[in-house]
């Protein structure tokens, strides 16, 4: 009994200490600062109660970036998982070039977000513009200059980057499906679509839970791609929540208000992701 107690803390202790130092304590500090008028420099801060929270209720930009973030998240979660799943189906069909394709699809995920943003910025403005001039196709020109094209550009970038990643999760799940189930279905005369719908989809439910969670929280907390691709422009219309918080803190220098926003942000992300996990968990089937 005593031995297991020792090994329990030996394993959990270091992790827990790190977690408390870099997550829990800053979180508590953050909550404390959200009730103050701290400017990020001075040691003396005044406690001002809930007025930071009252201010953010009236902040139109915060509301706008919330709506934009939710819209973006809905689209990106849907498309990333759809495309990731389709890619996984494609590369598990036993094609000769499967391994090659897997590598290619996963590759975008190896590039950092900031760099990706700049690469795609060049593609959208430079390459699209040149193509547009050459072919005379008007819709290729002036990308990133309107809210609509900036939104689509962000979406394309995220789908391109994350589809390969969730693909890997789906591949693992699909390969974990017992061969005999599929064979039995084949003997019963099921076609490709029937197999996917009645066997593959239910069997990979746990992978859906994980992938949905990952893409949901990643899209919600997106910052670097947002910064390097659109920087919130034009006219702050593609500013997502994380960037809105950063700007409040470091452009407007309102640390307290930014902290209050960050606390609200934490609650929102927690609510969305936890309820998603709860809902998707319920539909999982046990073997």
């Amino acid at each position: 009994m005593r031995r297991s107690w020792v090994s329990f803390w030996l394993f959990v202790g270091p992790c827990l200490t790190a977690f408390i130092i870099v997550v829990i304590i800053p979180l508590l500090f953050g909550i404390y600062y959200s009730f103050t008028n701290w400017n990020g420099i001075n040691a003396e801060v005044d406690f001002i109660g809930l007025s930071n929270y009252a201010k953010l209720l009236k902040d139109v930009h915060f509301a706008k970036s919330f709506v934009f973030t939710v819209k973006f998240t809905l689209f990106s979660v849907f498309f990333i998982n759809l495309i990731g799943f389709l890619l996984a189906l494609l590369v598990t069909r036993g094609l000769k070039i499967s391994n090659f394709l897997r590598t290619i699809f996963f590759m975008p995920n190896l590039i950092g977000g900031i760099i990706l943003g700049f690469i795609w910025q060049f593609i959208f403005t430079g390459a699209f513009g040149a193509l547009g001039e050459y072919t005379g196709l008007k819709f290729l020109m002036g990308w990133l200059s309107t809210t609509q094209t900036s939104f689509q550009a962000l979406l394309i970038l995220m789908i391109w980057q994350l589809s390969g990643y969730v693909m890997v999760i789906y591949i693992a799940a699909i390969q974990g499906i017992p061969r005999e189930l599929i064979e039995a279905a084949e003997i019963d005369g099921a076609g490709s679509w029937m197999k996917v719908k009645n066997i593959v989809l239910p069997m990979v439910r746990p992978a859906f839970t994980v992938s949905l969670f990952l893409t949901l929280s990643n899209s919600f907390k997106l910052y670097d791609q947002n910064l390097s691709l659109t920087a919130g422009g034009p006219a702050r219309s593609t500013e997502m929540l994380a960037m809105n918080i950063y700007n409040t803190a470091f452009s407007f220098m309102k640390m307290g208000e930014a902290q209050a926003k960050a606390v609200i942000f934490l609650i929102i992300v927690g609510f969305f992701t936890l309820s998603q996990v709860y809902v998707s968990k319920r539909g999982e089937v046990e073997m």
Binding site: M141, G142, W143, S145, T146, G233, P234, A235
Partner: peptide, 13 residues
């Protein structure tokens, strides 16, 4: 103006 429209100036960095 990248697309010929004034609004497309917002993409020029």
């Amino acid at each position: 103006k990248p697309s010929g429209l004034v609004s497309s100036l917002n993409a020029v960095d």
